[in-house]
């Protein structure tokens, strides 16, 4: 597969109500590695198997929620082309200067029809993994907490999922892997989109308020690691939303919980590999419960309502 254009989710920038408490949580409980702090007071993290400087940025605020979510693109030429395509499609864009985020090049920022601030960028400093690139160990010793291998995807909630899907498929060259339908059998309550061979790189769901964060997801390597993640959450009295189970959508194994500011996160493993020529999988309204939680076969409306 010749990957071009958008490569992958690159960074989630999150607002927190108490920075010190959040840094402790993301360092010692989730087990991300701190990579820097900037003059705005933002704190940067990466997961151990990520090679770029950061994938999570925390900012102190009087509210929780998402600041912005960024995708890395192949190169500067892709960035210019995608920006021009966004504008041609009717989306305004602005450039955020290189260095505004630590170790990160110029970013193209735009607002999705769902009301989220999204970004594309081509450059981020390669800092590598703790194992290095020559004769590496399979994983580093001395990790703390859950220690996911990467920031995997995000689920964003807001209005106009249909137009957001069109933006992602027509302009950003994502493809739909799965969708969950409303009871009209046509409208998507949620749509799952990939720019790679992952079962999803981003997902959008309907919500009466725009720009809401449903969750940021962090990848683990096995179901056993998902169970261990839930153990670590309970050992640390973390607010768990959904105990370990499997999704019908993507077939991934999951635990959902909340950071100390109430931002939901997921620790996730599995999910099938797919290709852009696959026909989308559809879940009917009647089977929405199985789509979201395959064992419970039911989903509490609060799972969708609870966002930051």
């Amino acid at each position: 597969m010749g990957m071009s254009g958008v490569l992958r989710p690159g960074h989630a920038a999150i607002k927190v109500l108490d920075l010190d408490e959040a840094v402790h949580f993301y360092t010692n409980v989730l087990g991300m590695l701190e990579t820097g702090r900037d003059s705005f007071g933002r704190v940067y993290f990466k997961a151990w198997d990520e090679r770029d400087h950061n994938s999570l940025v925390l900012r102190q605020s009087d509210r929780a929620g998402l600041d912005f979510f960024g995708f890395k693109v192949r190169d500067e030429a892709s960035l210019d082309k995608l920006e021009s395509n966004l504008r041609a499609w009717g989306i305004s864009t602005e450039r955020v200067a290189a260095g505004e985020m630590l170790a990160t090049g110029e970013r193209v920022r735009f607002e999705s029809p769902s009301g989220h601030l999204l970004e594309l960028y081509a450059e981020k400093k390669h800092v590598g993994t703790p194992m290095g690139n020559r004769n590496p160990d399979p994983w580093p010793q001395g990790l703390k907490g859950i220690a996911p291998i990467r920031m995997d995807h995000s689920f964003l909630a807001g209005g106009d999922v249909a137009k957001t899907e069109k933006l992602f498929t027509e302009v950003l060259d994502f493809y739909v892997t799965e969708r969950i339908l409303l009871d009209d059998g046509v409208t998507s309550a949620a749509v799952f989109l990939s720019c790679s061979t992952k079962s999803h790189d981003i997902a959008f769901g309907l919500h009466p308020e725009p720009g809401r964060l449903h969750h940021v997801s962090y990848r683990l390597e096995s179901w056993e690691q998902v169970l261990r993640a839930a153990d670590i959450m309970s050992m640390n009295k973390v607010s768990i939303d959904i105990a370990p189970t499997r999704h019908g959508v993507t077939r991934g194994a999951t635990v959902y919980a909340f950071d100390p500011s109430g931002n939901r996160f997921e620790t996730f493993s599995g999910g099938y590999e797919t290709y852009p020529d696959a026909e989308p999988i559809e879940w009917t309204f009647e089977e929405m419960g199985s789509a979201v939680f395959f064992h419970e076969r039911n989903v509490d409306p609060l799972f969708f309502e609870t966002t930051t």
Partner: peptide
């Protein structure tokens, strides 16, 4: 209604 339990979601 029980949401995030951490003062962030408002439910």
């Amino acid at each position: 209604p029980v949401g995030c339990r951490n003062g962030g979601c408002g439910v």
